[in-house]
Write a protein that binds this DNA or RNA. Structure first.
Lengths: 204, 204
DNA sequence: GCTGATACTATACAGTTGTTCAGCAAGGAA
DNA sequence: TTCCTTGCTGAACAACTGTATAGTATCAGC
């Protein structure tokens, strides 16, 4: 901020990587996979063309890094404990919170899904990470069901719940006006309650 | 088939357009938006490079045509009446039928969503068509609810249901093994029953 | 100071992108 | 037959794609 000098700072590899991932996210958020190009990312980051190859080996490498970061951030918000809320309640609130429900964030996810579906490198990365997300949701579901003395097929319910949430993402990208935060929250509970019971937490 | 002559046939504009849309679908199904290029589409169709511009004006024009056709086909299968089933039952069966649940079909949809989110031309096309889909689902929901003497906020339920179905698409593209036809059908009914009641049709 | 490692730039490269356009050829109308 | 419309080709175009690489600048350890 107080940096009046415009000289290019020499950053650590880690810092520069993070900066390039930021720039890549900004580009993808703005224009999807078509804006994920060398020229656009380096222009956004304000660095030279060679840096992407230098730090990530290739554009695929950068995309993998973007996916990994998005995934890590997503999971962190999902698992953030919220005072007075049960695990599953906290997750639902996280899902409709500005940090995750944001259209730009979700546009990046939509783009990444498209890549996972068609790019083997991304697919491998996804396979390696995705299990944690499923596991976290299953645990929260089992916890809630148990609190209500219910039996639950956590795997099946989790799969369907993830579909619902992914569908929110699609909807937010394609026609944001039709799906408000409140509607999404209501839809989550309408879907979950029949499976995990009415009393889903201390505060509800 | 019995055409031994390899001479290029001169087709009507309509026939050739359909052929190019077919080719474009095949390319997108195979590799997403990155395989939707002039060279790949014309190679798939076995025609010269100039033909796309000639018939569709631009690649955007072809993509709009692909979206329009996908949309029309989708809606046709959804609204196909099935003997012994109510409207909503027929729709759920359509959704998990090979014609719509197919991974290639759904990969095209995922690609199109990505484009709708970021390409103004596609977005306009989507806006112009999407209402019919929502309306069809709302009507089917209201019909089912009424048959059970239930009140229903068809718009809200339809929105959430569409999200669930879109999420199936994402899941089928990203990790097909996790979501079988049976699981999808079960998830649909688990979601719908609390809203429209238990007796959802003559055959159930 | 010197030295080696490495963050970083800038250019060059071959291949691909979408679009334009001049011209060919098939088929109907006269 | 002689037109004219139009489906269709193939080459040419400038802009852009990702990557390789030679060279420069900066830092840490000595």
């Amino acid at each position: 901020m107080a940096e009046t000098m415009r000289r290019k700072a020499r950053l650590s590899a880690e810092e520069r990587r993070a900066l390039l991932e930021d720039a890549a996210c900004a580009c993808i958020a703005r224009g999807g996979i078509r804006d994920f190009t060398v020229d656009k990312v380096v222009a956004e980051a304000g660095v030279s063309r060679g840096l992407i190859t230098h730090h990530f080996g290739s554009m695929d490498g950068l995309l993998v890094a973007v996916y990994t970061r998005m995934y890590r951030d997503w999971l962190a918000v999902m698992e953030e404990p919220r005072p007075g809320l049960s695990r599953i309640e906290a997750m639902v609130e996280a899902l409709v919170s500005p940090a995750l429900f944001d259209r730009e964030v979700v546009n990046i996810w939509l783009t990444l899904w498209g890549e996972i579906a068609n790019n083997p490198v991304l697919r491998d990365t996804h396979r390696a990470l995705y299990g944690d997300y499923r596991a976290a949701i299953m645990t929260a579901l089992e916890e809630a069901a148990q609190a209500n003395g219910r039996e639950i097929d956590a795997e099946t319910v989790a799969t369907a719940f993830i579909c619902l949430v992914d569908g929110f993402g699609v909807q937010r990208c394609v026609e944001p006006a039709l799906l408000s935060e409140e509607k999404a929250r209501a839809a989550c509970w309408a879907f979950l309650r029949p499976h995990i019971g009415d009393q889903v937490g201390a505060a509800r």
